[in-house]
Design a protein around this nucleic acid. Structure first.
Lengths: 199, 199
DNA sequence: AATAGTATTGTACGGTCGTTCAATAACGCC
DNA sequence: GGCGTTATTGAACGACCGTACAATACTATT
């Protein structure tokens, strides 16, 4: 029963610990944020965490970047794959807003933890600022392509859209429980319909 | 330096502990949720908490009801006081959405904690359901008075409005830092303007 | 094969956590 | 004044927390 080597190059080990962090946060929410639980999830001893990360705060900030990166990539993947709406990508965005890879209650469990940490920690606030800027820029691009001849303020529209989706996710995740996302999807569809009419 | 009696009837002591809980949560966010910190804030010994509340979970659920009740009352107060918009109360709602008594970053600090607990705890989920239902009903009333001849689905509109304000609060509180709420207020104003045009 | 360097382990430390409970102090009532 | 009743105290308990660190196991180089 000899174990093969369980040593990994630092980058891979770090990725594994980040992945374990996201799994714990999505599974348990705030109570999943524990060095011991994260290391157990990664099947690694407690001490290793502080060898690869200077503190839990740093790990959480990096995990926040990672979940945001995945979210961003998932959005791009949906938009790039929807060949019918290449010149109206906001439609794609709206129609996939509640797909499992974009947003699920599990994911929100993790996001809420990140938000609550953002309030307390300077490092997290800086991280959140960067993340938010990147996502907002991408959203503005999407809106610019969708509304080429409109004179509405795209930044304002982008902030409104992301606020609306955040709020709908919250509502869906906290109230919906086992329900489908049907109702919340309808709300988003109607918002888009109105916005396109007036833009 | 004799102390006057520091005994209180149970109801008053309970209120005081609930108040202390809200203060701690608004001041420190998640890390303020500690029996010891709450009792220190109330200038009371640790043991007393479990004399008046069976567990911290119960205290938090009741505090959630309380902050929601205050929020509800603050909304009503604004609407009742705005004599110019008695038949268009949604305008009042929008214009006071970022007033300090309605929503401030401090308040959001507490709400985020309640949301994160709602994910984990059955008791909190039940509480959240009740709170949400009450607020939604009130919002529907407000919308019904504001749009008497409209045939839009008021429940859908109510959910959209509360999701939008939740999202804007989040964005404002996490990004805005020391900024004014000007930008976020503008977004909400424009949303109302569009909604009224089409309703 | 010996060595230097690096990744990993597990224990230990000091703290804080929520909760329990015997002791105590203040109260209303006779 | 004496006496149940009830509110309050603070120490104690066991659990978990993040982190530090000496010891160990693995890898690469010579």
């Amino acid at each position: 029963m000899k174990k093969k080597s369980d040593r990994l190059p630092p980058n891979e080990r770090r990725s594994q610990l980040i992945e374990a962090t996201l799994i714990c946060l999505m599974r348990e929410g705030a109570s999943g944020l524990s060095s011991r639980k994260i290391c157990a999830q990664a099947q690694v001893s407690v001490g290793l965490l502080n060898y690869h990360f200077s503190s839990q705060e740093e790990l959480v900030a990096i995990a926040y970047e990672e979940i945001s990166r995945r979210y961003h990539e998932a959005l791009k993947a949906h938009i790039d794959a929807d060949t019918k709406n290449q010149n109206m990508p906001i439609k794609t965005l709206v129609s996939c807003a509640f797909e499992a890879d974009i947003m699920s209650p599990d994911q929100l469990r993790a996001w809420v933890v990140f938000w609550s940490k953002t309030i307390d920690s300077k490092l997290m606030r800086a991280t959140h600022g960067r993340i938010n800027q990147r996502l907002q820029n991408y959203l503005i691009q999407v809106l610019a392509k969708s509304l080429p001849n409109s004179n509405v303020d795209l930044q304002v529209l982008a902030i409104e859209y992301s606020a609306l989706t955040d709020g709908l996710w919250l509502d869906w995740s906290l109230n919906g429980e086992h329900q489908s996302s049907q109702l919340w999807q309808t709300i988003l569809n109607q918002w888009l319909h109105r916005t396109l009419m007036l833009a």
